[in-house]
Amino acid sequence: MLTTHALILAMVLFCLGLVGLLMRRNIIYMLLSVEIMLNAASLAFIAAGARWNQADGQIMYLLILTLAAAEVSVALGIVLQISSRFQTLDADALSEMKG
């Protein structure tokens, strides 16, 4: 019962992170929203691992933690570069690639 509700909570958190990612245009907030979504995914893994009483969920959590650490260190370097080159953190202002 607890694990089912934990999965529902993970879904809610993931949706909140997705809404934040789509709603905000500041790069810092977009990164924070990605962190929220990663956390929701790890909560789902932990809940599944607790439900089946297996260690695999926590191992996946460790891998997500590693991924988040690597991603954040590179992404924050990119944020510093953007702020020093463009003097803004608006994601819509970075349209030089004409994609």
């Binding site: 607890l2 694990t3 934990a6 909560l43 607790a50 969920g57 926590q58 933690l65």
Partner: peptide, 14 residues
């Protein structure tokens, strides 16, 4: 805290 309540104290500490 939720991780701890789900029986994963190591994940909670991390």
């Amino acid at each position: 805290v939720i991780f701890y309540l789900l029986g994963a104290p190591f994940a909670a500490a991390l």
